[in-house]
Every structure is written in C-alpha cells, then in structure tokens.
C-alpha cells in the first residue's frame, strides 16, 4: 500500500512540473532565489513592530534588460489566513444595527508589501489580479456568494481600508533595492499586532509588466512572554484556564472575607 502511494507520489511529482510549465511562458529563463536568516521569529509581548530583511537574486537574467531596469520585484509577507467578515451598520428605528455582511474566504490576517516601485505601475491590474499581489489585488472571494455583485466592490474596498488603517496591511514602494546587478534586498514590516502563526514570504519577479516567476518561503512567528502563555492557555487548555479563573476569583473573595472580617 505504502509502496503504491509513494509510486503515485513519484508520478505526480514527475508530471506536475511539466504541467505547471505549460501555463507559463516556457521560454523564460529567469528564476528568483530568496533567503531569510531564520525561518522562525520569537517576539516578546512588548513588541512594537519591526522590519524583516530578505535577500534574493535573479538568476538567468538578461543583462540588457537589467540595465534598462525592466525587471521588477515585489516581495510580500502574508500573515496566517482566516475567514474575515465585513459588516455594515445601518440605522433602524434610530439605532445603528449591523445589517449586511460579507465573509471573505481565507484572506491573510496581515500583509506587508515591498516593491521596486509602486505595484500599480509594475503591471496591468489584470496581471496583478491574476497573481494576487498588491493590497488592491489580493484575492477576496466571498463565501457562499449569491447576488449581482453590485455591493462586492463596496465590501472589498471597506475591507482593504479597515485593514490598512488598522496597520495590518502595509505597503512600501521602494522597499526592494538592488545591491548589485542582480542581487536585491527587500524590507517588509512586521506590524506591532502581528498575528501568531505561519507567515509566508512570497517574492514575485516581473519582466516589463509580465509575471515571470514566484518563490515562497515559510516564516513562523511565535509570540513569547507571560501574556502569550496566558493566551495560549486560554485557547489550548480552555477548561483548565476557566477553572483556574474561577479558583482565583473564589480565593480572592475568600481572602477578602478573612482579612476584613469584623470580630
């Protein structure tokens, strides 16, 4: 059984690169290589945001195109993904009530973008939408969406605006700099309220507005400290946490009645 499975896996791994190459220009010789010094970051609870530097190189580039600055690099740090619901309040009998809502499927909790220049000028919106890179082009797919789509834009815009104003989504046009001909350095920001979990560093290479290749690396972000211990306990051992909360309260109450006893 296991032998069969590994054989299947082998076939799949042999077949899939060929299949993947078919929907991309096969003639593109350029490849992107990136590296980060660590694949795990421990953050203390007084963390107020930081920069993360990623180094990379373009391999198999065309020197003439490079000299004309035809290559563009976009590096994104995507946070862990989760369903997000956007709600809008409307006035009902004088009271503000959440009325309509839309849930987007598996969008990153945080998103920090760094590029050689403004992403919107690198490629056509259609290309960016296809790759899903850029705050305006992240895939926002509504869950169980039925309707004419007229208010889809409204909710997407609200989502992006709220994420940007909350500091979860950031962009830095000019955050990617070439240090030598093909070697580059990208700076992405970890927001102060960076979500715990596996983030993904995703680098995209564009040549003259055409998407060439992509390279991704995982980055585990772990918060440390007493606050994080409490929050982990609350989520992973919720029964014990709840019982301890009650115990602490009962103890405080009992102590107070003993200390302030009037005899």
């Amino acid at each position: 059984m296991r032998a069969l499975a590994s054989l299947l896996l082998l076939i799949v791994s042999l077949v899939s690169p060929a299949a993947a190459q078919e929907d991309r220009p096969a003639e593109a010789p350029e490849k992107l290589e990136i590296g980060i010094s660590t694949d795990e970051i421990a953050i203390s609870s007084d963390f107020r945001g930081a920069d993360l530097t990623i180094f990379g190189a373009i391999e198999g580039y065309d020197p003439a195109l490079l000299a004309q600055r035809k290559y563009d690099i976009v590096v994104a740090l995507e946070g862990p993904k989760d369903n997000n619901t956007v709600r809008i309040k409307e006035r009902v009998f004088g009271i503000w009530v959440n009325r309509r809502s839309m849930t987007f499927e598996l969008v990153p909790e945080s998103y920090s973008l760094s590029s050689t220049r403004d992403v919107e000028t690198i490629a056509d919106p259609a290309v960016l939408n296809g790759v899903g890179v850029g705050i305006q082009h992240i895939r926002l797919t509504p869950v169980g969406f039925v309707g004419d789509g007229s208010n889809l834009t409204e909710f997407r815009d609200a989502f992006r605006r709220l994420k940007e104003s909350g500091g979860f989504y950031q962009r830095d046009p000019g955050g990617v700099q070439f240090i030598s001909a093909s070697l580059f350095k990208a700076t992405v920001k970890l927001p102060a309220n960076v979500p715990n979990g596996t983030h993904i560093v995703r680098a995209h290479l564009f040549r003259d507005g055409v998407f060439i290749s992509e390279k991704a690396l995982p980055l585990r972000v772990m918060k440390t400290g007493i606050e994080q211990m409490i929050s982990t306990a609350a989520y992973d051992h919720s029964l014990a946490y709840g019982a301890f909360s009650v115990f602490l309260a009962a103890l405080t109450g009992w102590l107070a009645s003993v200390v302030f006893r009037k005899d």
Partner: peptide, 19 residues
Amino acid sequence: DLVVTPDDVYSVISEGVYR
C-alpha cells in the same frame, strides 16, 4: 452610543476558525 452615528459604519472581524 446606540443612537449616535458611528465613526465608521463598517467593521471587520476575523472568524478565528483557523486559530
């Protein structure tokens, strides 16, 4: 607070399903 127009009528929350 229920009656006064809120600063932002939109709000976004993460479901926390995959936490």
